[in-house]
Amino acid sequence: MPSTTTDSSEELPRPQKRRTALNRAAVVAVGRRVAVREGLSAVTLRRVASELGVTAMALYRHVGDKRELLVAMLDDVAEQLVLPDGDGPVTERLVLAFRVLHDHLTAELWVVEVLKGGELFGPRASRFVEHVLTLLEEAGLGDERAVDAYWALWWYTFGHLSYLPALGPEGRPARNELMTRVRMDEHPRLSRMLARPPREGAEADAFVRGLEALLRGLL
């Protein structure tokens, strides 16, 4: 009678987990994910490789170093920015362009940290600049004034984005403690302002109102 014992050497091999295909797009996507989740300081080639389940050396076929990775990440963010289209008053289209940019970068605030360095940027962001300069030209500004207007609008937007992390809950305990050192009896208007808690969406509304005021002055 034949034995019913199964020879372990004849067991079928277990299926292996499918690894994400390693390519430049995958490396960039993981870099962005780490930056959004943990901040720019967490983005290293070693960390990205670990997330992909490969060695750091394997990444060098796709990005030469961290600098190249960051530029590729910036370019990816810029490429995904959907430029608003349509008719209407040029002022409204300019406000919309910077609102779209602001919303897009609010979800990727690590971009602001990279741009603060003043060296790196995503070359594909040039299409946004071209879009805005075209609108400013349509509004009647010559080349020099259009360039000045663009920088004013960009610096305003960049400044607002730079301050957004300070509005997060992790920064409030320290700010609240420091505010106890302010003599509120000497600053009645500030006291009244602080007594009114900001409503939801107040920061975004203030950004748009400031943008509209800035455009009125520029145009």
Rank of each mutant, 00 (worst) to 15 (best):
Q80H: 15
A166S: 13
A25R: 11
V95C: 08
R47L: 04
V30H: 01
N23R: 10
G122A: 09
R14L: 15
L96F: 00
R199L: 12
S126I: 10
F158S: 05
L105M: 09
H187V: 12
P165W: 04
H187F: 14
T106G: 08
A26V: 04
V48W: 06
P173W: 13
R14M: 14
R181G: 11
N176M: 12
P84T: 01
E212L: 00
K116Y: 08
L153H: 08
R181I: 11
R14E: 15
N23D: 12
H102D: 12
N176R: 12
R99H: 07
R33K: 13
A78H: 15
L115P: 03
K116T: 10
M1T: 14
L52Y: 04
E138D: 04
K116M: 11
M184I: 06
E38K: 05
V77T: 12
P89I: 00
F158N: 08
G118W: 05
L135A: 04
R19N: 10
V129R: 15
G86M: 06
R124C: 03
L120P: 08
E119F: 11
V71H: 02
R183P: 15
L190P: 05
E113I: 03
D205G: 11
H62M: 03
A25I: 05
T157N: 06
L120D: 09
S50D: 10
S3E: 14
K116I: 07
D205V: 14
R181H: 12
P165K: 08
T134D: 07
V82L: 13
V34S: 01
A139F: 02
F98C: 03
A146L: 05
L83W: 04
Y150L: 09
M73D: 14
G159P: 12
T134W: 02
P165S: 04
M193T: 10
L167N: 13
G168N: 06
L194I: 11
E138W: 01
V132Q: 07
V208W: 00
A139N: 02
F121R: 15
L133P: 02
V82H: 13
D87V: 10
V100I: 11
E113G: 07
R127F: 02
R46E: 15
T134P: 00
A35L: 08
M1R: 14
R37S: 14
V132P: 03
T55S: 13
V100R: 14
A202V: 08
V77G: 01
L69N: 01
V77Y: 00
